Lab assay of single mutants.
Amino acid sequence: TRVETATETAWISLVTALHLVLGLSAVLGLLLLRWQFPAHYRRLRHALW
């Protein structure tokens, strides 16, 4: 049971790290898009909202 718990903890930390990385890359990508294509971003936002 001790090994299982350790594996579970490792998986949880791995998944958390993955989610953090994905979230950060998504935010960075959005910022980059907004910085590179302001007109396109505004049009996209206008279409979405």
Rank of each mutant, 00 (worst) to 15 (best):
L14E: 01
L18G: 01
L20A: 11
T16N: 05
L14G: 01
F37G: 02
G23E: 05
L31P: 06
W35I: 15
A47I: 08
L24F: 11
G23N: 05
L22K: 01
R43W: 06
L32D: 04
E4L: 12
L22T: 13
T7V: 13
R43K: 10
V21L: 14
W49K: 12
L30S: 08
A6L: 07
L24H: 09
A47F: 11
R42Y: 10
L22M: 13
I12A: 08
A26K: 04
F37D: 04
F37W: 06
H40W: 08
V15G: 02
L33C: 14
H46P: 03
A10L: 00
I12D: 01
R2Q: 13
L28F: 08
T1E: 11
L24V: 11
T1K: 11
L14W: 00
A10P: 04
G29L: 14
V27T: 11
L30H: 07
H46V: 00
H19V: 03
A26W: 08
L22V: 12
R43P: 09
R43Q: 09
L30I: 11
I12R: 09
R34D: 01
H40R: 08
I12C: 03
L18I: 04
F37V: 09
V27E: 02
L14I: 08
A39Y: 11
W35N: 15
T9V: 12
T5S: 00
V21H: 00
H40T: 10
A26Q: 00
L18K: 03
Q36W: 15
S25E: 04
L48F: 05
L20H: 04
H40K: 09
E4F: 13
A47W: 10
L22Q: 04
L32F: 02
F37I: 07
L20R: 02
E4R: 13
Q36E: 15
S13V: 14
L33G: 05
V21E: 07
P38F: 08
Y41L: 09
A6W: 04
E8S: 04
L44V: 14
A39H: 12
L31A: 12
L44H: 08
V21Q: 01
T5L: 01
W49R: 02
W35F: 15
T9H: 09
L31W: 13
A10E: 09
S13C: 15
H19P: 03
T7N: 12
T1L: 13
I12H: 07
Q36M: 15
R34L: 05
L44E: 00
V21F: 13
P38L: 09
L18N: 02
G23M: 14
A10M: 06
Q36D: 07
R45V: 07
L32E: 03
V21N: 01
W49S: 02
W35C: 14
H19F: 00
A17W: 05
L22I: 12
L44A: 13
A26N: 00
L32R: 06
A10S: 10
R45D: 01
S13R: 09
T9C: 06
W49Y: 14
E8P: 09
A47H: 10
L44D: 06
V27R: 03
A39I: 09
L28K: 06
W35M: 15
A26H: 04
R34H: 03
G23S: 09
A26G: 10
S13L: 14
W35L: 15
H19G: 03
H40L: 09
Y41H: 09
L14M: 14
A6H: 07
Q36Y: 15
A47V: 11
L14A: 02
L32T: 10
